[in-house]
Computed example of a mutant assay.
Amino acid sequence: MNTSFKFLIPTIFIALGFIISCNDDDLAGEKVPNVNHNTSPATAAVASPPPIQQPNPTPTTKEEEEEEEKPDFDINDIDPEDISRRKKNIEEEIKKLEDESTKHFDEYYQLADVQKRIMEEMKIKKMIMRSKPVGSEAQAIAQKDFEDQKKLAQDKLELIKEKNNILHNIIKALTKAREEKKDLHKKQEYFLKKQKKEKEQKEKEHKNN
């Protein structure tokens, strides 16, 4: 699963920033400055990185190719049966982690959607509260409604942060498992290639004899 993980943190802190901004000073009925509410941290301009200059490919000699083929492990330590078994286990683990990742991402999207609706309701309740006469009973009732909605948003935000941590750990484990599978595949390919070369060499020597 190649789902991007970058959107999680901005979503959480945009929500957190909105909730924190609804402080006690706002509740006193002060005039709100005229700001562009369509602007958010998520839409801030980000400087593009400079283009990466790709080096021109240089021809390699036979000695360099042989040097590149040298592995960082000892072929005598390779047990093909053990590698096959470990590859099967790691593939099962990757499948399990991918399923968990899909499940938790779906739950995250659901939580984010609920949080969005709660925050929209917060805005409405805040507008109602500010429309009431300062110090009146109507304002006190509207303020309580707003505070209840604010508390609900904070509780949901904690759930989103917990889900964020779970997804972080799953993706970290998934990356590690995929790297391990890649390493096992590399050892397996090298072992088979080495065996093939040795077999061809023996056949060649046999013909010469």
Rank of each mutant, 00 (worst) to 15 (best):
Ala140Asn: 09
His185Val: 15
Pro133Trp: 03
Gln53Val: 12
Gln54His: 08
Met129Ile: 01
Ile90Ala: 01
Pro80Cys: 06
Lys103Pro: 08
Gln201Val: 09
Phe5Ser: 11
Glu93Ile: 06
Thr58Gln: 10
Glu200His: 04
Ala28Gly: 08
Asp183Lys: 06
Leu111Pro: 03
Thr60Asn: 14
Glu92Lys: 14
Gln188Asp: 13
Asp113Pro: 02
Asn34Gly: 14
Ile170Ala: 05
Val114Ser: 13
Gln195Ser: 04
Gln115Trp: 03
Asp77Gly: 04
Glu30Gln: 09
Asn169Pro: 02
Arg130Gln: 10
Ser40Thr: 14
Ile12Thr: 02
Val134His: 06
Pro50Cys: 07
Pro51Ala: 02
Ile171His: 12
Leu184Tyr: 06
Leu184Lys: 01
Gln139Thr: 00
Gln201Cys: 03
Ala177Arg: 00
Ala142Gln: 05
Arg85Asp: 15
Thr102Lys: 12
Thr58Gly: 05
Gln188Phe: 07
Met119Glu: 09
Phe18Gly: 06
Cys22Arg: 04
Leu111Val: 04
Pro49Asp: 06
Ala138Met: 07
His185Cys: 12
Asn164Pro: 04
Ala177Asp: 05
Cys22Ala: 14
Glu93Arg: 09
Ile78Gly: 00
Ile78Val: 10
Lys156Thr: 11
Asp26Asn: 15
Ser136Glu: 01
Lys156Asp: 08
Glu203Lys: 03
Gln195Ile: 06
Lys87Ile: 14
Val32Gly: 08
Lys207Thr: 07
Ile12Asn: 03
Lys163Glu: 06
Lys123Gly: 11
Gln149Val: 03
Lys163Ala: 02
Lys199Gln: 10
Met127Cys: 04
Phe13Tyr: 15
Asn208Val: 14
Ile94Val: 11
Lys150Arg: 08
Lys193Arg: 08
Glu189Gly: 00
Ile171Asn: 12
Ala45Phe: 14
Leu111Gly: 08
Ser40Trp: 13
